[in-house]
Nucleic acid binder design. Structure first.
Length: 756
DNA sequence: GTCGGCTGGCTTTTT
DNA sequence: GCCAGCCGAC
């Protein structure tokens, strides 16, 4: 089992008692170490699967872990708790719903559900739309919850935040009233459950002697607290992560958890997995050099014994369209030489960049697949059916009620809903329960809708889950509605797919025979699995909320892979193109102002580069269409940060760094400027003077120097302003010169010409 | 209640 | 350039 591991891997796998931090570099066999350790604990140390808790971030990672453990050890993994933070918290809360103050049937709101719940409350409370918007409030609420802060513990720094806190409190009341739980709430509730209930806490701390965490760098403060709580004082925490691949700070992930864990738990117990089994030497050397520019890393250097391989190919084109064209040609050449399309990935910083690429690939007839976008359970038609199913499960679910009460239309308009809401408000009840208080014509229509729901609920008692889904699809009128739509065919297919998904679900859960709406009779005997104590329908709805469906390729699909760098994390390809390497695109313009944001962008670049096994391409364009405007961009600093010896310049006349000095882009710029005037000049002025580089300029002798500006020095040649500081006589700038690298210059003295 | 036109806004998104 | 959300017209 451990014979094929390298020394560091073996050390990690066979680490004894205590806490351990494993710094697992990209491609260093992280998953293998995790799964082998679990197998080793059970097989060689006689540890019971029962005392193992393994946490991941994605369902996919959790599944993969289980599959791989089962491949090593022919044991039943049932007793183990392996899952996502959210999945495991859900399990805890279903088990102990009473202690957690929840109905056992509580529903989970995904992000979209949460937003619509917030919108609804927002309208009801008549919030000032010029001061707040629902999205901001959603962010506020989630970020509070991710820090473990309840409304009463919030500290508002100003009046505006006071309103946010107030809204948070009202939102929470609404959730309680409706028996729904959002993603962050799953974690916070589970955390509070353990924190406030010493008996339960003792039970789980006693049980889980081995706690293993994957992608530790992505944990948020609440997850950290949850882990420490469930581990208690006697358990062994095995945390695997890579601070250099932390790219989810914007979602609350806190990289400092790694430092904290080292301080609080691991101490000197840190193992680095630095041998890389994925990429060639040139790629790793360049990636190492790049990431070294970040400060406060835990420190790590990837190496390989499989040779230098090919240098990184760098190509600069005039426009984004030509960049796409060139990628296409390169892809075609690779395909002609026998590379499989699915082994080629084209990466970009933001989704908007995919359009041009898609256009070229599509026109040329090269099969491609774009990742991202809506997933199966997030599709409109699917959410509609799920809303009916949720109402069958719990008719007091107002979010679902509002979603489908008039879809397909059945003459229940905004006026009627308003009336109903008012009644519900007055009687402090759900919309469903408010129906009998209605009068007039709308009352009849609403009563008919209630009858429909009751008919469905009745059906649920006598049908299996797939049958029920089919029944609801038909009797809700959704099937007929989409049949009548011009673009409805695909949606109809998805509805059928939902029936299939239900069938697969009951198969896998071993509940095929139960009626969808009934709680199994032997439910209470089932201590191992709280989900088994739910009706098949309830379990399916939970499944639909926690697992939005795969965005990953089906195996065997023959297509070029297009995705954002974020989406590429954890994947690898023989050939990788990283496109759009421009200052303002990658690094993104919104990240230029703060050093910690820039460092995250650099980590993102690091992730992008380390996806490549054999060949890595970096491309950039001088100008790009963005937000409907043609804009001019400087080269990404990340290209400049790579060692020249690992690069192979494919653009005309490469020179020292930029590859552009020989055929200066100064001339290019002139040409482009000429071609796109005046719109282009205006766009540029907006770029540098406007929102992007705000507060990033100094004025010296009446001339303004801004970050991102192109300048020319009589001796050093052309360069780009990276940083500015000081005032007047003391003003300084750090400038990246193409020929001689970075220089700090006093702006009052240096003879600089501004060229762009 | 539905459709069409207008305006504004715009990174990334495991659960 | 594209999409979502809103508003006004039918």
């Amino acid at each position: 089992m451990i014979a094929q591991l390298n020394d560091a891997q073996r050390q990690a796998v066979t680490f004894g008692q205590g806490h351990l931090l494993v710094l697992a570099g990209a491609g260093s066999g992280k998953t293998r170490v995790l799964t082998t350790r679990i197998a080793w604990l059970i097989h060689s140390q006689g540890v019971s699967p029962h005392s193992i808790l393994a946490v991941t971030f994605t369902n996919k990672a959790a599944r993969e872990m289980l599959t791989r453990i089962e491949a090593i050890l022919p044991i039943n993994t049932r007793g183990m708790w392996v899952g996502t933070f959210h999945g495991l918290c859900n399990r805890l809360l279903r088990f102990h719903h009473r202690e957690a103050g929840l109905e056992q049937t509580f529903q989970i709101l995904d992000s979209a559900d949460q937003l619509s719940a917030i919108r609804r409350l927002f309208k009801e409370l008549n919030y000032d739309e010029t001061l707040f918007n629902p999205r901001e409030l959603q962010q506020f609420i989630n970020s509070q919850k991710e820090q473990g802060i309840r409304p009463d513990a919030c500290v508002a720094r100003d009046q505006r935040e006071e309103h946010c806190v107030d809204f948070y409190a009202r939102y929470q009341e609404q959730c309680e009233r409706e028996g729904v739980v959002d993603f962050a709430e799953l974690l916070l509730r589970a955390y509070e459950l353990l924190k406030n209930n010493s008996v339960l806490r003792a039970h789980y701390q006693e049980r889980f002697k081995y706690v293993l965490v994957d992608e530790f760098q992505d944990t948020n403060p609440l997850q950290y607290a949850w882990l420490t709580l469930i581990a208690g004082t006697d358990s062994n925490i095995f945390a695997v992560g890579d601070d250099d691949q932390s790219i989810y700070a914007f979602r609350g992930a806190d990289i400092s958890n790694m430092f904290r864990f080292k301080q609080d738990y691991a101490g000197e117990n840190v193992i680095r997995l630095e041998q890389n089994y994925r990429s060639s030497g040139h790629i790793l050397d360049a990636a190492n050099q790049l990431i070294a520019a970040n400060e406060g890393r835990l420190g790590k250097n990837l190496w390989t014994d499989s040779g230098q391989g090919e240098p990184i190919r760098v190509r600069i084109m005039d426009t984004d369209a030509l960049e796409a064209q060139w990628v296409l040609e390169e892809v075609q050449a690779l395909l002609a030489k026998g590379t499989e399309p699915q082994d080629i990935a084209v990466l970009y910083r933001s989704n908007a960049q995919s359009r041009v690429l898609e256009h070229r690939l599509f026109t040329a007839g090269v099969p491609y697949r774009v990742y991202g976008g809506l997933r199966f359970f997030e599709r409109q038609e699917i959410k509609h059916v799920l809303a009916y199913l949720r109402l069958v499960h719990n008719p007091n679910d107002d979010t679902s009620w509002l979603r489908v009460v008039n879809f397909p239309t059945r003459g229940i308009g905004a006026r009627s809903i308003e009336q109903l809401s008012e009644l519900a408000h007055n009687y402090q009840c759900s919309l469903y329960r408010a129906v009998p208080f209605m009068t007039g014509a709308a009352a009849n229509r609403l009563a008919t809708f209630v009858q429909l729901l009751q008919q469905m609920a009745h059906a649920a008692q006598g049908m299996t889950l797939p049958e029920l889904v089919q029944f609801v699809t038909k009797h809700s009128g959704l099937a007929e509605y989409y049949e009548g739509q011009r673009e409805g065919q695909e949606r109809l297919e998805n509805l059928q797919e939902l029936v299939n998904a239900a069938a697969v679900f009951v198969q896998e859960e071993g509940i095929a025979d139960h009626a969808a709406g009934q709680i199994p009779v032997d439910a209470h005997a089932s201590v191992a699995d709280p989900m088994a104590a739910m009706s098949p329908l309830g379990a399916f709805l939970t499944h639909a909320s926690l697992e939005a469906g795969d965005t990953q390729a089906q195996a065997g699909e023959q297509a070029i892979q297009l995705m954002t760098v974020h989406a590429a994390k954890g994947l690898e390809f023989d050939v990788v193109f990283v496109t759009g390497l421009e200052e303002g695109i990658f690094p993104h313009e919104r990240s230029l102002d703060a050093e910690h944001d820039l460092e995250e962008e650099r980590r993102l670049m690091y992730v992008a580069m380390t996806r490549a096994r054999q060949r890595l391409y970096l491309t950039r364009a001088h100008t790009r269409m963005l937000h409907g405007q043609r804009r001019y961009y400087q080269s990404s600093r990340f290209i400049a940060e790579l060692p020249e010896e690992n690069l192979h310049w494919l653009s005309p006349a490469p020179a020292a760094y930029g590859g552009e000095a020989g055929q200066p882009w100064g001339q290019h710029l002139g040409a482009q400027m000429h071609r796109w005037q005046p719109g282009n000049r205006r766009a540029q002025a907006d770029n540098y003077g406007g929102s992007i580089y705000r507060n990033r300029a100094v004025t010296v002798n009446g001339r303004e120097f801004r970050i991102g500006m192109g300048v020319r020095h009589p001796k050093f040649g052309e360069g780009t302003v990276l940083r500015v500081s000081g005032e007047g006589e003391n003003a300084q700038a750090e400038i990246q010169f193409q020929a001689v690298g970075k220089k700090n210059l006093a702006l009052a003295i240096a003879k600089l010409d501004i060229i762009s």
